[in-house]
Computed example of a mutant assay.
Amino acid sequence: MALPLLTHSQAWALLGLAILMEVAGTTSMRLAEGFTRLTPSVMIFVFYGISFGLNTMIIRTLGLSVVYGVWSGVGTVLTALIGIYYFKEPATAIKMVSIGFIVIGVMGLHSASRLPAA
């Protein structure tokens, strides 16, 4: 049984949730300390499973290039910021400029998703 096609707004909302699940999964990797802590180790797979499941539904509406680009870009930026603010990793100039470029790329992909198909 196929799921109904999502509206544009529903797809973007679910993509936001998928991104949060991916960031939680990646953060759990750090908290798992090399799979030596059970709960964060299990949560890696739970969070990524939810994220990939949502992405599979969203791709039908927004397309692969937009979904994966935005998912990975926003996830990368959020994960980098968590590393800087929560795990006290250094916020070097090159790191901050690189984050800025990722944000610009994500904004471009979002804009492209609003244009009619050629």
Rank of each mutant, 00 (worst) to 15 (best):
M1L: 14
M1I: 13
A2D: 02
L6D: 01
W12C: 04
W12I: 11
W12Q: 06
L14N: 04
L15R: 02
G16P: 14
L20Q: 02
M21K: 00
E22T: 15
V23E: 01
S28D: 04
R30G: 10
F35E: 15
F35G: 03
P40R: 14
P40V: 07
P40D: 12
S41I: 11
V42K: 00
M43C: 08
M43V: 13
F45Y: 14
Y48R: 12
S51A: 15
F52I: 15
G53P: 14
L54Y: 00
I59E: 01
R60K: 09
G63H: 02
L64K: 03
L64F: 10
Y68V: 13
Y68M: 04
G69K: 09
G69E: 13
G73V: 05
V74L: 12
G75I: 06
T76E: 09
L78C: 12
T79E: 02
T79R: 01
A80Y: 05
L81V: 15
K88F: 15
A91C: 02
A93R: 04
I94Y: 07
K95G: 04
M96G: 07
I102W: 04
I104P: 07
I104S: 02
I104F: 00
I104T: 14
G105Y: 11
G108C: 12
L115A: 14
P116C: 11
A117M: 05
